[in-house]
Amino acid sequence: MDRRAAADLLKEKFPDAVQSVEEFRGETTVAVDSVRLRDVMKHLKDGEALRYDLLLDLTAVDFADESPRFRMVYLLYSTRFGDRLRIRTRVAEGGALDTLSDIWKAADWLEREVYDMFGIRFSGHPDLRRILLDEGFVGHPLRKDFPLKGTEFDQPFWSFVFQPKTPI
């Protein structure tokens, strides 16, 4: 199956949801309206000519000075057609996206990581809590306004551990 075709099929099926199709270095990126994300993804997985059965990765990017602030990126692969596709959508700070963890179980942990690192919430996620950092950690490190060294870099370790923190 040709690469271009997947984006075209998607455009036909969801003319209102597909915002743009980009080609860069031989990779196709389809920008999708966040409200229709779930429908599009369900179709991508189950659609007869699509069959993107492997959710390789799911991540976010922080464009701090743009609005809406975050971009969500989904990397899909179809084992039947050997085809890759990238879906992206925008989400505002404090906003929430629909979870995909019931479509692909892989999204469960990946969405937790995005929540941990960016603070983006996923409505309908069964167990949305931090995955890599401590429960008491304040802030979301991969946001552009979070300093690389954190806020307590120069303090001795024990003050870090024993300072009472308000869980987020």
Binding site: P147, G150, F157
Partner: peptide
């Protein structure tokens, strides 16, 4: 790794 999550030397502990 001079980052937010790494203890800068185990001798702090």
């Amino acid at each position: 790794f001079q980052t937010y999550s790494v203890v800068q030397g185990v001798d702090q502990i």
